[in-house]
Design a binder for these strands. Structure first.
Lengths: 129, 129, 129, 129
DNA sequence: GTGGTCTAGACCACT
DNA sequence: GTGGTCTAGACCACT
């Protein structure tokens, strides 16, 4: 379930990164599970392999996957990556967005409901393409 | 209280946009309040006026400020801007980040506390430079 | 003083990374000093700009430089980067090499002398190309 | 005591090479001692025999082991291998890393202590698997 | 002018 | 088969 919008202002490789992060966070891609090969994904999405490569490299730098030459790319198990620094960054971003939600008049109950839904995994998933 | 980090990977104009959005959401900049002029802010921050101009233009496109020819730039009052489309986008972003928080093991109580703090305006503010 | 050996088994971009790290560690490149632009270095070394870009990106990931679109790449000041994790890795590598030196019969006095020389900056430098 | 990390970015054959070098430098593998056979090690580590073969071949090229047709692979005695060229390379590498240590603020006393520990064999060993 | 993205296509390294 | 490196060349984004 990877969807790339070629017209988007967001770079293709970044869309890929976000799509795959989504699949990992949703549990659709399990720890140590193999991702599609660079060439395979490139031909499926009709995107240049270099772009896929770049996205995978970025996901590796971010600590979400690991790469092994001759074998493939795999989902990094959770314990190995959740650095404190990243969590702080994440909470900062959430705080910014909640401030904006407050400003535009979204009720706090609404946001709390989102949190409940996410933590109960009620929110829709999707299989890999 | 605008802080620009010249070392940041984030483009300067984008830092400006985010800084000013922050000031608006926090209520430090009030509806219809005048923003510093392009030249003034440029000289204060020792940044190219074109970059300030670009940030103001972006804020206008996003619906957070309006520009009055020959008079300056002003904060857009809330009712005039809070489009449904923007709110949907905002909630999507929050949902994504909450999923990630869940994935890395941050408790939902922790996030709910952030929401409480933001809505009670307990979170620190800052005045314009 | 960047020297690339096109025949080397070591990838070009990696040679670049090591060369530039050298320049930084030797103090030839000072904190916040601007590196040659991607295109400039590419034409000087007659190497594809993409390869220079890749090396700079890697140096950024490693925390040795920072990159700013439209402005250039700059040496990251020391305090911002020297993570504990990296130091541990570094000391591990040194330990491995010292074990090997011991094995092949290099005296410990010899190695200690190297350390003295490095810390007294007696070891030869070189200017950027 | 050979440990292979399938998740590591470092190629498996290279991990093998480094592991075995370690065992040799630590004296756990003695001169002229026989290494496990390719098949034996492959089945122990559940790794492709071709990969083991490649690692052994590499160790032979580096001068750390020798292969005797039909009998197996053996540790090369010290006097036969410690080429001047290798020592120079080794000292270069150590110098580079010590420069980095200096740059990131590690004290020279700290490094000297490592040297003392290694030469007194205080540093922990490990037996072959 | 400066960095960043992307394609097309070749070739190498590892399993 | 799989990831990684590199070139050539086009075009976009930011200052």
């Amino acid at each position: 379930m990877i969807h790339i919008d070629l017209r988007s202002r967001e770079p293709i490789y970044e869309q890929l990164v976000n799509n795959i992060k989504e699949l990992i966070f949703s549990g659709i891609l399990q720890p140590d599970e193999k991702l599609p090969s660079v060439r395979e994904l490139a031909s499926q999405l009709t995107i240049n392999p270099n772009t896929i490569q770049k996205a995978y490299k970025e996901l590796e730098n971010l600590g979400y996957i690991y790469s092994a030459r001759g074998r493939g790319n795999f989902v990094m198990p959770v314990d190995d990556k959740s650095g404190v620094k990243n969590s702080v960054e994440l909470l900062k971003k959430i705080t910014e967005l909640v401030k904006e939600a407050n400003y535009v008049g979204i009720s706090k109950e609404f946001i709390k409901q989102i949190i409940e839904d996410v933590y109960r995994k009620k929110i829709d998933k999707g299989g890999i393409e």
